[in-house]
Design a protein around this nucleic acid. Structure first.
Lengths: 367, 367
DNA sequence: AGGTTTTTTGGAAACGTTTCCAAGGCTAGG
DNA sequence: CCTAGCCTTGGAAACGTTTCCAAAAAACCT
């Protein structure tokens, strides 16, 4: 199916040269009113449309942006992609989407493919921004780009939630409710610097608050056996009274597993999630979580890329502390008294101050 | 930023003609071992990569597929897109994604844009497959395409859940539990033939089962005031004992609103959703719903498009009855007996207590 | 050796645009 | 009435490939 009607056909029909057709249709250069009319008429009669491919070759610009994310199954990315796509769309750019499934090989391949397609820019979430082969290629190729949900290396911009600070905030939330020892549940720890940031922040937050260092439970792809894993985890760490899950789905799954284990949330186990997906407000108890705005992030990254393409000043990155907020929810409460007592008996606490924590606990619970 | 190194540069460096370079690198046509070596060496030395744009112009094929869906905020589409994207990716095709936001104008525009970009095919979910301007353009342009989640017009293929049958099944599920009068809650009724199909099927299912025709509650974009709407709806239809929501999010929101109105689910009001998103199994009570497999649908549509591109036989569409299954859940149960009693007494009570409904009305109407 | 295949090679056309440039027709100023 | 300058116009080059074709080189026959 060859290009059905080309600029040449229009030129013939209008009885003029192709250059004239191009000028008229693009409103570039001059043309007599009469000529203009003939060209328009011919264009309509033939139903002519420019081939963007030929244009791209000639203009060396495709008005296409490569967008690379791990997966759309995670609504955070889905929303971010949509936000980016809309922003690009508005500026007359289309979006070539590729999902890496958290696979480094795919990631590199995706970048190569899109580079060959001569995209005008990239918005991408990589597995590890500091060591990404593909990202380096983009940088050295001088292709406009902006990271999304990554910790930006030097010289790079990234629209991202401040995972570290958010995790600190979660630690604060736990301690406010009187928890001393909690767990961190991570998915795809290996392939996501975001998860690692959250963990790092959480560890630091716990430490700052004088809490026991959080126990780490790291799981793989499928949460089929999450209940079993949790059982082992809790047995191994009998003093934990809460779990910080690295995303909301995981948090909800954790609640389900907790129920399956006969634990009630939040009494026996408090849960805090991350992302702030909407269903978190629909469940009972509602999910305490870090609320983020992925769509905004995606749109922001898009605007940044557009700005470097156009050579206009880049939009300001949002204040890191405004990239998230904490949402209280029924899934986080003071630990039940019995478990606190348990702990008192069991835990030979390190350099912190569990007594004081327990006071807080009492206070909270008496409300 | 011109193409940094072209086939010409390689040819010069290798001391041969461009035709030879092309042949060697594409493994088409013959070349002496020595020549081959020189070309490869030059390619590596220069870091040459083909420009897909130039290739596309020459070969009149872009290895790019246009993918159009209403939104990625709905995980059904997000999953479907991912499924399609993966299938295409595997076949060496990339995916140009556009979201219409349920806007007909955008839809038409999107199709025009992608047509100009000379995509090799389309996978798309349109608002109304029978009257879509853009779809007609695609058809008459002879561009390979496959619908997704649409009711296919004649001559077209569509990978879609059999919404009609699924809705029948939901009606059966309600009647099995002893419901007689239920409501149908629809979002974007105007702009989605899927929602309309579901409604149509549901009406028919209710009729077949001798139930009262379902009451229709149609809502717009934001469910902010869903609770208020539901209150009015239930007051207007005091005999309904259940609601079939046209998607799972809506179902979960409905449960939340029901709670806000002091109704318990499923005792006062049973809820059935549609789509089978995973969180439905994580909530309490779990959500009764129609389970679908959007990723499979997306991948299927992709395979269909690929088959018409390659001229190979199209994959069989799945048996319509296997495109969905019913998942039982705690949100669907028999209507509470007390409510039946209660209702008798309070038949005339105004809007104070929305939990009360009139069973006599129900029985009378059911004949 | 000479003629006949077969292989290897490179020039050039083509894909559909945009844009440079030169040429022609006009207008206007002298 | 002539010339300098402006507006219009179209030919042709360029963008980076692939592919057709013919020429050159190598191989294989008697």
């Amino acid at each position: 199916m060859r290009q059905p009607v080309t600029i040449k056909d229009v030129a013939i029909r209008a009885g003029c040269g192709v250059a004239t057709v191009s000028r008229v249709l693009n409103n570039t250069g001059s043309a007599s009113a009469e000529m203009r009319g003939r060209v328009i008429a011919a264009t309509n009669a033939l139903g002519f449309e420019f081939s963007e491919v030929a244009r791209s070759l000639q203009s060396n610009t495709t008005r296409t942006i490569g967008c690379i994310v791990p997966s759309l199954a995670n609504p955070v990315f889905a929303d971010a992609v949509q936000g980016a796509q809309e922003a690009f769309q508005e500026a007359g750019y289309q979006t070539l989407l590729l999902c890496t499934n958290y696979d480094l090989e795919f990631e590199a391949q995706a970048i190569r493919t899109l580079t060959a397609k001569k995209v005008d820019g990239f918005v991408l979430t990589v597995s590890d921004a500091l060591n990404s082969e593909g990202l380096k290629a983009i940088q050295s190729g001088g292709v406009p780009h902006c990271l999304l949900f990554n910790l930006a290396p030097a010289n790079d911009q990234s629209w991202s939630v401040d995972d570290h600070s958010a995790a600190l905030r979660v630690a604060d939330a736990f301690v406010e409710k009187g928890h001393d020892h909690v767990g961190f549940l991570a998915l795809k720890f290996k392939s996501s610097d975001r998860a690692r940031q959250r963990y790092k922040g959480f560890v630091e937050g716990c430490s700052r608050n004088g809490m026991t260092p959080p126990a780490l439970l790291e799981i793989d792809e499928d949460s089929q056996d999450l209940t079993a894993l949790m059982k082992a985890f809790i047995e191994e760490n009998p003093s934990i009274t809460g779990i910080f899950a690295s995303n909301d789905f995981l948090a909800l799954a954790t609640i389900r597993s907790a129920r399956a284990l006969g634990l009630t949330v939040p009494n026996d186990l408090s849960i805090v999630g991350f992302d702030g997906i909407e269903v978190g407000t629909m469940v009972e108890p509602s999910l305490a979580t870090i609320v983020t705005n992925p769509k905004l992030m995606g749109a922001g990254a898009a605007r940044t890329v557009l700005s470097v393409i156009n050579g206009t000043p880049a939009p300001d990155l949002p204040d890191p502390n405004l990239t998230f907020s904490f949402r209280t929810g029924g899934s986080l409460a003071a630990p039940a008294a019995e478990r606190v007592d348990d702990k008192r008996g069991v835990a030979l606490s390190p350099s912190n101050n569990p007594t004081q924590k327990n006071d807080e606990t009492q206070q909270e619970r008496s409300k």
